[in-house]
Every structure is written in structure tokens, then in C-alpha cells.
Design a protein around this nucleic acid. Structure first.
Lengths: 192, 192
DNA sequence: ATTAAAATACCGACCGGTCGGTAGGTTCTA
DNA sequence: TAGAACCTACCGACCGGTCGGTATTTTAAT
């Protein structure tokens, strides 16, 4: 019997496998048989564990947001100094996205329109909550006369960080610490 | 099966309509009947004009890259001053993406894994060519000792600009000129 | 310690429906 | 009267999902 101290052990491995497949092939072009096969099950066996394809995606996305709360938001909110807060936000957000294990998070970045109705609304609210959090942290380092630009700055920061999942390949020439340093410097001081 | 013999014959409205639908619903979850209906045709009627769903996507993506070449790359390459070059790159790239008409370009940003084989390779090469171009323009304004960071800076810039398609809604509180100013300032001088 | 019942995990076979795509005929236009 | 434009009707493959049933594990009373 397996028993690991981590709370993630409560997490059925099916979700991790499915997140991996969704990340690789995209939600729409992944069939339930694909996921079943990856989990070494038949489709009927898979459906013993989940309610529907959409619910499976929702559970994965929700878990990705839980990770974000836990690894980025909560620790950053405990920091007092505004500049250090922002630096930690950048470092933690980037590591969260580039960590090879967290497929749930990268799926969030790509699958926007796949959920419908209530589930979609709930996810959008969680995302909005995080964006507002980033905006506040960014506003903390802006001089008073430029506070009005906090929203654009927040989106700029989120963009440069989130876009990484599109091009970053671990093991390439660019390391995660170099990326953290580079983006922190650009966002804080610019390139010129 | 039909033409595509003439490169400029692109302005068949079918491609614009299809780009719009792909942009709205995503490639995979858009059926050919959806596109046919949007174009006021039956599916068979639509297939009189195109060879396959994948070819339709490829034509759209290729046209999006043509637009990028024409509206961003070519004019920017004619500018001598490195700083002005970069400023124009930012302004033109953002306007290209946020222009409501250019659905072909926003489809490029989202549909990465939908093409297969040769078509995918060709698209990836055109994209890589553009990324190299951005990297060179960025390197033009970097002090010598930081030239090695040009690639990270280029990806940061591309990220903050390209991410806009995910959240920007025309008619909202943020205008395109404000966005151009804001992102130019952040990338050139930082926020702190 | 035994064992029977209950719960869980899983499967082969199948369902209604939709997908991308097509054969073959009709209408429009020059 | 030729060809482009477009249609009705249809195809095989595959989709998400379910059915009835079996194997395995857990539980609990003896």
C-alpha cells in the first residue's frame, strides 16, 4: 500500500496523466480513449473514476489554481516589502509554470474556451482573482503618479511570464534562474 | 479539388469567415459544417473551394504570417535608428494583433499543434524567422555587456504583446494607444 | 481466523450522434 | 455549351458515454 506524506497523494493519478495528455495534444483533440490508454485502462474503466470529459478538465484546472494559490499567492501575501513581494511573485510564478511536473497549470493557460456554463464562470472568477492579486502587487512598486497604469503593467507581466509555456523547453540553452533574473530585470528596469 | 494556383487569389471571403470562426471557437471544436453555415454554404459547397480542413487552416495561418511580414517586418527593417526601430516594432505588432479585422493573426497565436507534418514544419519556420527578427531588433538597443540576454528579452517582449489576445477586448477601458505607450515604457524603462 | 456480503475497480460490447469528406446531379453565368 | 458554383444525400470512422457483468479488495460478523 502506498502512503506518501504529501497531500497530493489524495490526488488520483488519473488526473495527472490526463493533465499531461491534455497539455500535449490539447483538450479537443484528445479523446477519452487516449486518456484511458495513457492511464492503462479501458474507456469504461476510466469512466468509473470520472463523471464526464468536461468535469475531468474542470477538476484539472481547479487543481492548477489550487497549486497557484499555494505556491504563489499565499507565500507572497506574507511578504511586507513591496519590491521583495514583486520579485518573489515573478520568481514563484515562473517556477510554477516551468516546473515540468505541473501540467495542470499549463493546461489552464491554453484551454480557455473548452469549459461551458457554470464551470467556465467559476474558473474565470478564480483567474480574475489572481489577476487582481498581481495587479495589486505591481501597484505596490509604482510611483503614485503612475498607479493608473497598474492594470496594463500587470497584464504585461503576466504576458511575458505566461507566454513561456509556448516556447520554453527544459534542457535548452536558457535556464529557469536565468529566465527569472532576466524577466525580473526587464520588468523592473527595462532594457534600454 | 481546386485551385490555390494564384497566391493573391486569397481574398476569397471564405478564408476571412473561417478565420473568424476558428478564432472564436478554436480549430478542433469547429466543424466544417459550422464554417459552411457561417459562409452561407453547405458543407459540400464549401469543399468546392478548399481541399481539406487542415489546408484551410494552413492557408489562414500563412496569410496571417504574410500580414505580419507586410505590416511589421518590412516597414521596421527600413528604419535606421535602433531605438525608433524597436518602438515601431512594438507599436506595429500590437496594432496588428489588436486590429479587429486580423483574425488570421490571432489564430496563429492559439493553434500551434493543429497542423501536422510538413505544413506544421513550414509554419514553425516562418514563426522562428519572425522571432529571430525580433531578437535582432531588441539586441540593437541593448548595451554591449548585455547582448547575451537578447533572446530572453525578445521572448519577454513577444509574450507581453502576444498575450493581449487572451484578455484585450476592444471598447473596454484600455485603449490601443494606451497599451502601446504602456508596454513601450515598461519594456524600455521598467516599472520601478 | 473464516467467510460472506458489500463496495470498489475494471472490462467487452455497444449506442446515438457527429465528424471530415465525397459522389453525382443541378443551377448559374459567360 | 462549358465550366464554375453549389446542392442533396450519403459514407465509414470515431466521438463521448453507458450497459451488464466480472474480478478484486475491504469490511464486519462470526
Amino acid at each position: 500500500m502506498k502512503r506518501s506524506s504529501n497531500s497530493a497523494s489524495l490526488h488520483n493519478p488519473i488526473y495527472d496523466i490526463a493533465a499531461q495528455v491534455f497539455h500535449k495534444r490539447g483538450y479537443d483533440s484528445t479523446s477519452m480513449s487516449d486518456i484511458a490508454h495513457a492511464a492503462r485502462l479501458t474507456k469504461a474503466g476510466l469512466y468509473h473514476h470520472i463523471a464526464s470529459k468536461e468535469m475531468l478538465l474542470y477538476t484539472i484546472l481547479n487543481y492548477g489554481m489550487d497549486l497557484t494559490d499555494e505556491i504563489v499567492m499565499r507565500p507572497v501575501l506574507e511578504i511586507r516589502d513591496p519590491l521583495e513581494r514583486l520579485k518573489q511573485l515573478i520568481a514563484r510564478h515562473l517556477r510554477l509554470i516551468l516546473q515540468e511536473r505541473n501540467h495542470e497549470v499549463t493546461v489552464i493557460l491554453h484551454e480557455d474556451k473548452s469549459l461551458r456554463g457554470t464551470l467556465r464562470k467559476k474558473m474565470n472568477e478564480r483567474k480574475k482573482h489572481y489577476i487582481d492579486f498581481v495587479e495589486k502587487v505591481v501597484a505596490g512598486v509604482l510611483p503614485r503618479r503612475r498607479k493608473s497604469k497598474a492594470r496594463i503593467a500587470a497584464f504585461a507581466l503576466l504576458g511575458m511570464m505566461n507566454w513561456c509555456y509556448q516556447w520554453y523547453r527544459p534542457g535548452g540553452r536558457i535556464t529557469v534562474p536565468a529566465l527569472v533574473n532576466g524577466m525580473t530585470e526587464i520588468f523592473l528596469h527595462g532594457v534600454a
